[in-house]
Design a protein around this nucleic acid. Structure first.
Length: 586
DNA sequence: CTAGGGTTAG
């Protein structure tokens, strides 16, 4: 397309200079009801268009901005950008829309230099702009190699660009530091940007920063809305800070913000704090429960160990009219895994396949393979693992742990090696799983090697779980002195389960001497913990020292310590649609 | 600007 039009093509039907036309506000009646507008629609070339344009002039309609804009658009569409511009220049007060129409035809006719000239003019007349205009103008700069103009427009974009959108973009990308930069540079912070920043922190695992921003006096003038409250409640739950959670709950009541989304967040938070009654009360109170409400309580109860309550609610949900989604199934599977309820879980597997919930969902696949692993069906677990397109570190850890609880440390180690070859980074939990696998399989050397590697190569600070695995590893294999030294030298205060692992080994190898020493240390460290007395009883019982057992029991009664009896469970006649029944044994 | 999810010793 050439830019050079012949002069005669640029002549328009006569119309008086606009300052001579009657000044009249643009007509109220809609141009679509005018027959001439209909004629304009029939024009399929520039000659017929000029004829109808003449009609518009005769009828004095060229002072109407809508007609003029339509003319600009039509001249442009016939490739006559310059005629379009002549019409445009006669519009007394062009608006943003008419400017955009003009720009569009320059753009479609590759008239980049004209675009820049027109844009400069346009900036003088109207202050509006949008992303379409910016992208057109930027393209014009690059096509005409005008970096200087480009830089100016860059600045305009930075100034005009919605900071909230920019913040949101960084938050969605998980680039939380960049988000904070944008936030700090904002000319004025309002409720939306403040909330967006809080949401960003909460969703990216920085609940402390979220709470800090929420409580910062700098923003004392801004009242939170329901989005802010829901997000900050989630931060309190992540932090495990119940007192702040309660304060925010109270604040929400005062501000009248206990809306459904806030209630959902409260249900979730109280469940995470083991406050099942609060959680349930709020849940029952909410009249329109959506899938998130149900998931909040089911996942909360499943996570805090109230698995029966979680499953009860899951069945109730199934009877109602809210359909479970992937999150629901994941939570239910996790509850079923801890019960070893293989049949119910398998039917949920079938259900998920049927509903298409399984495909390409890492959470779902991981929960499912964990479930099969915990139920002892490690082959099904591996099948699920192999079929997963996307696997995360958690997926690999779960599969390694699945082999581990079967005592198949060799497969655990093999998979761990495969994971490293795939250049995936193990995390703390991966090491917990693999160390436990080593201890179940009696692989003492491998266990030590991996423990050392975890500290030295990966710079992980061992947690109580790691230490417990090591104690278990050593104690189970009869290296009780070594285990005792290990406990004495570790930097953490040993807890009940660590001592439990040690005492278990003492019982296995009849090292009651070492067991008694450990018990004395335990009693010094935690005098009020009933579980230690039970461990002590077990040890004396294993040694046949029944008088000692009786003495410890009396000591417990005197100190008013109580331990609820444990019981094991087995699955009885559980069908997909039947209610859950589990017998307790022993 | 929106609440909910998978792995972790015995």
């Amino acid at each position: 397309m050439t830019h050079h039009y012949h002069h005669q093509h640029q002549q328009l039907p006569y119309s008086p200079p606009h300052h001579l036309e009657p000044t009249m506000a643009s007509s109220n009646h809609h141009i679509y009801s005018n027959p001439i507008f209909y004629l304009l629609g029939l024009c399929d070339n520039v000659y017929t268009l000029k004829t109808v344009h003449g009609l518009l002039v005769v009828h004095g309609l060229t002072r109407d901005i809508s007609f003029n804009t339509k003319l600009v658009s039509l001249y442009g569409s016939f490739g006559h950008a310059k005629l379009a511009r002549l019409v445009f220049d006669r519009i007394p007060d062009p608006d943003f829309y008419s400017c955009k129409v003009m720009l569009r035809w320059y753009f479609l006719n590759d008239l980049y230099r004209e675009i820049l000239g027109f844009y400069a003019l346009m900036r003088l007349r109207c202050r509006d702009t949008d992303n379409v205009v910016f992208s057109v103008v930027l393209k014009a700069c690059s096509e005409s190699r005008n970096a200087c103009e480009g830089r100016k427009i860059h600045c305009q974009i930075v100034k005009a660009g919605s900071p909230d959108a920019l913040l949101d973009m960084y938050v969605k990308c998980g680039a939380i530091r960049d988000a904070r930069c944008v936030f700090d540079e904002l000319y004025c912070t309002d409720l939306v940007s403040w909330t967006a920043m809080i949401v960003g922190y909460t969703q990216n695992g920085f609940p402390k920063e979220a709470l800090k921003l929420f409580t910062d006096n700098k923003w004392a003038g801004i009242l939170p809305n329901n989005v802010t409250i829901a997000s900050i409640l989630s931060a309190c739950a992540q932090l495990g800070n119940l007192s702040w959670g309660r304060l925010v709950h109270a604040l929400a009541i005062k501000l009248g913000l206990v809306l459904p989304n806030v209630t959902n967040a409260l249900v979730d938070m109280y469940a995470k704090f083991h406050k099942n009654e609060y959680s349930r009360y709020l849940f029952e109170q909410l009249s329109d429960k959506d899938v998130i409400t149900w998931n909040s309580i089911i996942s909360g109860f499943s996570q805090n160990g109230s698995v029966y309550e979680a499953l009860e609610l899951f069945y109730r949900m199934r009877r109602g009219n809210v359909l479970p989604d992937a999150v629901t199934i994941v939570s239910a599977l996790s509850a079923l895994a801890s019960l070893g309820a293989l049949q119910v879980g398998s039917s949920l597997h079938a259900y998920s396949v049927k509903k298409g919930l399984l495909s390409s969902n890492v959470f779902m696949g991981t929960a499912l393979l964990t479930f099969y692993g915990k139920c002892g069906d490690v082959r099904s677990a591996r099948k699920v693992f192999n079929s997963m397109e996307e696997k995360s570190t958690i997926t690999w850890s779960a599969m390694i742990g699945g082999y581990g609880i079967q005592g198949d440390g060799h497969n655990s180690l093999a998979l761990f090696g495969e994971m490293l070859r795939a250049e995936l980074k193990p995390n703390e939990a991966t090491f917990t799983s693999i160390l436990s696998a080593c201890s179940h399989t009696g692989m003492v050397r491998d266990g030590w090697r991996l423990f050392t590697s975890m500290c030295q190569d990966y710079n992980f600070v061992p947690s109580m779980k790691h230490y417990s695995c090591m104690v278990d590893l050593l104690a189970r294999s009869g290296r009780l002195e070594e285990a005792y030294d290990f406990i004495s030298n570790m930097p953490l205060r040993p807890d009940i389960s660590l001592f439990g692992a040690f005492l278990h080994g003492c019982g296995l190898y009849s090292r009651f001497d070492l067991g008694e020493v450990a018990i004395k240390r335990m009693m010094e460290l935690h005098p009020d913990e009933a579980s230690y007395y039970v461990l002590m009883c077990n040890l004396y019982a294993a040694d046949g020292r029944w008088n000692q057992v009786r003495q410890v029991r009396e000591l417990m009664v005197n100190r008013r310590l109580n331990k609820s009896p444990g019981c094991s469970l087995m699955e009885l006649d559980i069908g997909y649609d039947s209610t859950h029944r589990v017998a307790s044994v022993g």
